[in-house]
Design a binder for these strands. Structure first.
Lengths: 242, 242
DNA sequence: CCAAAAGTGTTCGTGTTACACCCATGA
DNA sequence: TCATGGGTGTAACACGAACACTTTTGG
């Protein structure tokens, strides 16, 4: 902070946000992507995002862009837990000009068809299974990989997993979130005890139960609790790199 | 990424880096600060940092600014492990113009008097005990608090603590790093076993030993090992918020 | 011989793992 | 009555917490 402060002393930087929004659908981790309509990378998939406006923080911009570019319900976007991932600032990450991008991650429940409704930008938003994502515009493949690694790690020591679930969920659904993100099987009795033994992770919905697979015993329903961290952590099994 | 790309369409953003560089001296956590010479906040303490140049990444800029603004040895700065903390982008965090800052943290060993040598900017750099830091320029107090929380958490599940130690160190020195950062006492036998049981955390220096407190049995010396993560983690005792 | 710091051993309790088993529901 | 998924019980084991004890140095 020693240099002078002439706003026009340097070639201007653009500051953008990029969002890696995940959901769990049909036993696979999905990410929300946008089909680009213009060069560069026209026709390629990209993470939703856009410019930070002069009077916005990056967090505010992220929320606004998410509402504008995707068809996610306003209410969901407003309440969403956005987490800063990191900032990407390599000089040539955008071929046109200097763009520094603040990346965020968010987790949402499996919505009916969240991206298909709204017009305009939202029409080009789709959920894609992360395993099927091949090429992405700019350095978005790197951002996606970093985001995926981060949420996998975060499930170990935070209560974020409930963010993937609907407002009321069964322990089986919660477990399948872990299994999907980690791509690993967990022992059901032990998972159950672990979750219930952590105060504030989930709260029982009194008397409520729901059938899940169509068959079997109806499962008790739970709501997210007030806790945010998991002590002691719920460690994933050995090799879950992929 | 849907808007057009006129570099001058918006009021320009300045992009800066800020650095929270920590060390452990005399049983207290210290942070490297700069005395500001100009308005705003002239005379106040601030984190070292500065503008990202047009052809630099934030990481490169952080390393350059650290070498320029502080008296830290070139070799140390070049080899230093810099970790991105997060990006601060509130519109009014700098009263003069829009400044988005990417914050980094780094850990260095207790150097003789690292900040006192070089001329110019470096002359205003000093180590201050974090407990004694009261007011900082801009939002740097928030950044410092976030950085402190982050390194405390990182010690739990990474091998970063060796970054606070000289090239060869005793287990007692390593333990005092944990105790200082966490502000908590640890059981020496258990700490010792835990560290030695983690493959690649530390490597014994064969035959080497050194006296630490002037008295007592000479302690074996260790070097940092190749491992970067700690599985299972070394959890800190309950209340270490302060 | 005492203080101080390093290093070893041992016990005890908690939490995780791995499994066997019972319960409720739809086909 | 069988398959399916929810839920309970329990023994074996690994790990961490706590603390007693030995070793090696300087004063």
């Amino acid at each position: 902070m020693t240099a002078g402060y002439d706003p026009y002393a340097f070639e201007p930087f653009a500051v953008t946000v990029d969002l890696a929004v995940f959901t769990v659908r049909a036993g696979a981790l999905h990410v929300l992507l946008i089909r680009r309509g213009q060069e560069p990378y026209a026709g390629a998939w990209a993470l939703p995002g856009g410019f930070v406006l002069p009077r916005e923080s990056a967090e505010t911009a992220a929320r606004r862009e998410l509402a504008e570019e995707t068809g996610l319900p306003e209410q969901l976007v407003a309440a969403l837990h956005l987490e800063q991932l990191r900032t990407y600032s390599e000089p040539d990450r955008d071929p046109r000009m200097r763009v520094v991008s603040v990346a965020f991650t968010a987790l949402v429940p499996d919505l009916p068809e969240p991206a298909a409704e709204g017009g305009g930008d939202a029409a080009h938003a789709r959920w894609l299974a992360v395993e099927d994502v091949s090429e992405l515009a700019f350095d978005h493949a790197v951002i996606l990989a970093d985001a995926r690694e981060r949420i996998g790690a975060k499930l170990e020591y935070t209560c974020l997993a409930t963010g993937f679930c609907p407002p009321e969920f069964t322990l089986g659904e919660l477990q399948s979130v872990y299994e999907t993100v980690w791509n690993a099987g967990l022992d059901r009795p032990n998972f159950r005890r672990k979750v219930l033994a952590t105060p504030g992770f989930v709260e029982a919905v009194p008397g409520a139960a729901r059938l899940t697979g169509g068959r079997g015993k109806p499962a008790a329903l739970y709501r997210p609790g007030p806790a945010t961290t998991l002590h002691p952590p719920l460690l994933r099994p050995e090799g879950t790199t992929r």
